[in-house]
Amino acid sequence: MPVIKTESLSHVYGAGGPFESVALDNVNIEIPQGAFVGIIGHTGSGKSTFVQHLNGLLAPTSGRVLLDGEDINADKKRRHDTRFKVGLVFQYPEYQLFEETVARDIAFGPRNMKLSKDEVSARVREAAFFCGVSEDLFERSPLELSGGQKRRVAIAGVIAMRPDILVLDEPTAGLDPAGCAGILKNISDYRAATGATVVLVSHSMEDVARIAERLIVFDEGRVVMDGSPAEVFSHTAQLRAIGLDIPAAADVAEKLRALGVPVPDGCYTVEQLRDAVLALRKEGGTC
């Protein structure tokens, strides 16, 4: 049974009003336990609206969202429980830091779960560790930290609830390359240690190409592609037509094919393309 399933999920903002707009249109997706799914699409494609349905923050206009086979919007208790099982990290989560100290901010979620004091502090230390937040920062004000550190603290606040499903909306937006790589590694570490399901929304094709096992592409509120990164990135023309970039390596691979170099399909990272090119050299017998 998939851990998350959406059935004919549609969402209309301002239904019946003058600014009515259909954000999601009949979305049917199944995500198995432990999957690492990347969600891509240009601004306004519906990807953020979609992930906000996964923990019941938005309710469907029509259709259902199932968690472990049960409708998350069935009743109040289920909606409440869903919030702890599905951890949602918003865009620019550092704007939501509000507590006096870093430790208290990370503890906010577990405290609301009514855990014991010892359990809360254990969770805070664990989440800080996963997110690379040094314990030296625990008593500092979150407002004194750098942008990258704030982002880590905000993500730790969600991880401290030990969600079975971690949903992140553009967690690397605005960070420098080292900051991006660090956050992506933290997410991978959390998944490796806990077996959690991860759903990652990103504009960065290089990021999702590097870490996701499956990609779902949104355009105008619909799912237009769903497959492995190799499958999705082989549809370069279609991706460009809906306003998406493709990873530089996939772009180079496509141009090599146009020049008559028989690079195999499914090269979308630098390492894959390097190996493919070196294999061609050996076949060519020039070396």
């Binding site: 420098d176 530089a248 180079v252 630098v270 393309l273």
Partner: peptide, 18 residues
């Protein structure tokens, strides 16, 4: 702590392999 564009990274790796 800076990365180079993926095109340069690819060329770099290929040069490293001769």
């Amino acid at each position: 702590g800076l990365t180079v564009p993926d095109t340069v990274a690819l060329s770099w790796e290929l040069r490293g392999a001769g």
